[in-house]
Nucleic acid binder design. Structure first.
Lengths: 117, 117
DNA sequence: CCGGATCCATTTGGATACTG
DNA sequence: CAGTATCCAAATGGATCCGG
C-alpha cells in the first residue's frame, strides 16, 4: 500500500471508530448521565433525575435502557418496599471515565475561551 | 466546608463543565465533523460532505456555522472561480483532538466488547 | 463549488396521569 | 420509588431546487 492509501485508510478507520462511540453516546443526555454515575458506585433513578438538570423521567428511562443494552451501565433491582433500583457503570462503562474527565477539562478551557478572561 | 459538602460541590462542577462541552458538541454530527478536520490542516465543504457518511449539505452547513461561532473551526473563503472554502480547526479546536482520539480508541474497545471475540 | 430556501416526514421530548 | 402510557408540540433532518 502506498503511503497515500495508507493515510486514507487510517483516516477512514478513525472516522468509523469515532462513529462507533457516538452511536452509543448519542442523544442529548447520555454523557450527562454517565458523568453522574462516574462519581458514585451506585446511584438511584431519582438521584440521576436530580443530577441531570432538565431531563424528564421519560427520557431518563429511555436513555438508561439504551446504555444498559450497550453494556455501559448495570441495573440492579432491590426488593425493598417500595422498590429501589441501583444504576452503576460496568467495567466497560468505567473506561469512559477518562473521556468524561477530559470533556470536563475542555469545558473549563472553553468557558474561559468564549466568556473570556 | 465539610468533606461532604466539598464532594458535592466537586461533583456539581464536573457535571456543569461536562455540560459546557456538550453544549458545543451537541447534535448528531459535530464530533464526526471535527474528526474529519483532525486529519487535515484544511478541508473543503464538499470534502467533509464525503467524509461524514450520511450528512446532508443542509445539516453540514448548519453544524459548521455553530462550530465557527464557538471558535472551534475557522472558515476561509478563497476567491477562485467557482468559489472555494476551507475549513480548519482553530488552536482552540485542536485541543479537542485528544478527546477525538480517545473516543476512537474507545470505539475500538466497545466494538470488541459488543460484537465480541 | 458553496451553501440558502422550501417542503415535508420523522424524531424528540415535555406534561401529565397512571400502575405495581 | 421507579418507571410506563398517552397526547401533543417542537425540533430535527432529508430531498430537492435554486442562486451567487
Amino acid at each position: 500500500m502506498s503511503p497515500q492509501e495508507d493515510f486514507q485508510a487510517t483516516r477512514k478507520r478513525l472516522m468509523r471508530t469515532v462513529q462507533d462511540s457516538m452511536d452509543v453516546l448519542n442523544g442529548k443526555w447520555k454523557i450527562a448521565i454517565i458523568a453522574s454515575l462516574c462519581c458514585f458506585t451506585k446511584r438511584r433513578f431519582s438521584d440521576i433525575l436530580n443530577d441531570v438538570v432538565g431531563i424528564s423521567n421519560r427520557m431518563l428511562s429511555k436513555e438508561l435502557k439504551e446504555l444498559e443494552l450497550n453494556q455501559v451501565i448495570k441495573r440492579t433491582v432491590l426488593d425493598t418496599q417500595p422498590i429501589t433500583v441501583h444504576y452503576e457503570l460496568t467495567e466497560h462503562g468505567k473506561t469512559l471515565q477518562p473521556i468524561i474527565e477530559d470533556l470536563a477539562a475542555w469545558g473549563v478551557v472553553h468557558h474561559k475561551q468564549i466568556v473570556g478572561k
